[in-house]
């Protein structure tokens, strides 16, 4: 049998409580090793254990998109991903989008087009939008709307979000996130 890894109990100073797993993965380019209760989701690990609170919890049920992050380059929901499943994966969060201290073009476009109000869904919208460009699905407003529909915005900044994405797509499309 080749179970990997056979897990030691979590280090108590890392996450108090029951035995868990240690997960080695990369977050925003930095290797991390996190010992935690097996029940801990990627979302809670980012927020509670790695102090990366930019990724938001809006439902914890996979229904709102606020926790959207990239795992190995694909947009997924951190609330329905166990931390333990991320062993060896590369995770990118909203905190990892900027390059050399400069905001990502999508972040700038959201500000320019007022693509948010309360701002709570915004990190998820932006992570989704960056992936959308990578997926080459920002060719029409209709496509942008359809393929962004997994990200709810209760303040309803939708038209402005679409405008921001269209703007970035027209300025350089998939290259904009380089």
């Amino acid at each position: 049998m080749t179970f990997t890894p056979e897990v030691p109990p979590a280090a108590p100073d890392s996450h108090p409580g029951v035995a868990g797993t240690t997960t080695a993965f990369t977050v925003n380019g930095t290797p991390r090793s996190v010992a935690a209760d097996t029940r801990v989701t990627l979302l809670d690990a980012l927020r509670d254990l790695l102090a990366l609170t930019g990724t938001k919890k809006g439902c914890d049920q996979g229904a709102c998109g606020a926790c959207t992050v990239h795992v190995d380059g694909r947009r997924v929901l951190a609330c329905l991903t166990l931390l333990a499943q991320c062993e060896g994966r590369e995770v990118t969060t909203i905190e990892g989008l900027s390059r050399d201290g400069r905001p990502h073009p999508m972040q700038e476009a959201f500000v320019r087009h007022d693509g948010f109000q309360c701002g709570y869904c915004t990190p998820g919208q932006i992570m989704s939008a960056v992936a959308l460009l990578r997926e080459d699905r920002a060719r029409t407003d209709k496509d942008i709307r359809e393929f962004m529909s997994g990200n709810l915005c209760r303040c309803a900044a939708y038209p402005n979000i679409v405008a921001a994405i269209r703007d970035v797509a027209q300025r350089g499309g998939v290259d904009a996130d380089l």
């Binding site: 905190e95 905001p103 915004t122 990190p123």
Partner: peptide, 8 residues
């Protein structure tokens, strides 16, 4: 805006 879009 910069703080909200950066997750800060």
């Amino acid at each position: 805006g910069p703080a909200k879009t950066a997750g800060q």
